[in-house]
Design a protein around this nucleic acid. Structure first.
Lengths: 172, 172
DNA sequence: GTCTATAATTTGATAGAC
DNA sequence: GTCTATCAAATTATAGAC
C-alpha cells in the first residue's frame, strides 16, 4: 500500500466515524508515519483529499456491486445483493456509509467534496433503478429512492442507538 | 427571546447545516451580540451546549407531535402527521433533522450529547410504535423503524442532492 | 451577565533544504 | 517524497474586573 493509499484509508476511517471535520492532516500523517507537511505533497488541500476520498469510495462501492443484469444472470436478486453490501459496511466495519455522513453535512462541505457526494447518490439511484426495473417493478424510480433511503436511514439509526438489530429489522 | 435561547437557536441553525463541529462559541456570540467568553456563563462547555440543544430539540419535536391517540380522535392518521412534521422541517427550514445529523456522527460526539441523540430516537420509535399499533398494524415495532429510517434517509439524500423532490417521492 | 485579557492547543498551509 | 521550521488563524476554556 502506497503512502497515498494509506492516507486515504486513515481518512476514510475517521470520516466514517465523525464526518469531514473529524480528521486533520497531522493525525493522518501520524498514523502513516510521515509529517503533516508531507501530506500536502499527496493532496494540495484538505478539500482535495476529501474529494478524492469520496470519489474512490464511490468507485469501490460500484465495483463491489457489479451490474444488475450480471447478478440476475447468476440467479440472485440485485436488491438483495445491494442490501448485503450495506449490511457488510455496517456489521464488518461498524461504521456509517461515508457518503451518508457527508451527505448529511453536505451544506458545510467544500464544493468539490459536495460534488463527489452527489455523484455517489446519483450513481446509486441509477443502479437501483436498473435493478428494480430488471425485477419487473412498475415504478423503478420510486422503488430506488425508497431502497436507498431506508438503508441509509436504518444505518444511521443503528449507529446512533449503537444497536445493529435496528438495521436488521428495517431490512428484513 | 433570552440570550440563552438565542444562542441555542443560532447553534441549531449551524448544527443542522454541518454537524457538531460546524459552530464555535465565537460565531454564536457574534450572532447574538455578546462575547465568546460570555457564552460560557450560559453553557459551561461546548458539550453542555450540544446536549441541551439536542434535549430541547427532542422535547420540541415531541410536543409538536402530540399524542397518537389524540391525533386519531381528530380523525387524522398519526403517521401522516409525523411525516408532515418531517416534511416541514425539510421544506420550511431547508435543513436536516438535528438528530439525524448528530446520529450519523454519533461516535465522535461527547458522551452527554450522544445520550441526548439516543433519547431522540428511542422516544421517536416509541411514538411511532404506538401510532402504528393504533392504526392496527400487525407488527408496530417493525413499521416504526421502517418509517423513521425512510424519513431520515430520504431527508439526507434530499439535502445531499439538493432536491426535495426525492423526499416527496419517497414519502408518497 | 458581560467584559477584557490571555492561555494552551490545534488547524490548514507554505517555504525551502535534502 | 519527506523533512524542519514556521505562520496565521481559530478553537475551547479560564481568571478576574465591572
Amino acid at each position: 500500500m502506497t503512502k497515498k493509499e494509506a492516507l486515504l484509508k486513515a481518512a476514510e476511517h475517521k470520516v466514517r466515524l465523525g464526518g469531514y471535520d473529524n480528521f486533520s492532516f497531522r493525525e493522518l500523517a501520524n498514523e502513516v508515519g510521515i509529517k503533516s507537511a508531507s501530506v500536502h505533497y499527496h493532496f494540495a488541500t484538505k478539500a482535495d483529499l476529501g474529494a478524492e476520498l469520496a470519489h474512490q469510495y464511490t468507485d469501490s462501492f460500484l465495483a463491489a456491486l457489479g451490474e444488475p443484469a450480471d447478478i440476475q444472470a447468476e440467479g440472485k436478486d440485485p436488491i438483495e445483493v445491494y442490501t448485503q453490501l450495506f449490511r457488510g459496511s455496517l456489521v464488518t466495519d461498524d461504521k456509517m456509509c461515508l457518503c451518508g455522513l457527508l451527505g448529511a453535512q453536505s451544506e458545510s462541505l467544500p464544493e468539490k467534496v459536495r460534488i463527489e457526494v452527489k455523484r455517489f447518490f446519483n450513481e446509486n439511484l441509477a443502479w437501483l433503478k436498473a435493478a428494480h426495473a430488471a425485477n419487473g417493478e412498475k415504478n423503478p424510480s420510486h422503488a430506488a429512492i425508497i431502497t436507498i433511503s431506508l438503508l441509509e436511514g436504518a444505518m444511521m439509526i443503528s449507529k446512533a442507538l449503537n444497536d445493529h438489530s435496528h438495521f436488521e429489522l428495517a431490512t428484513q
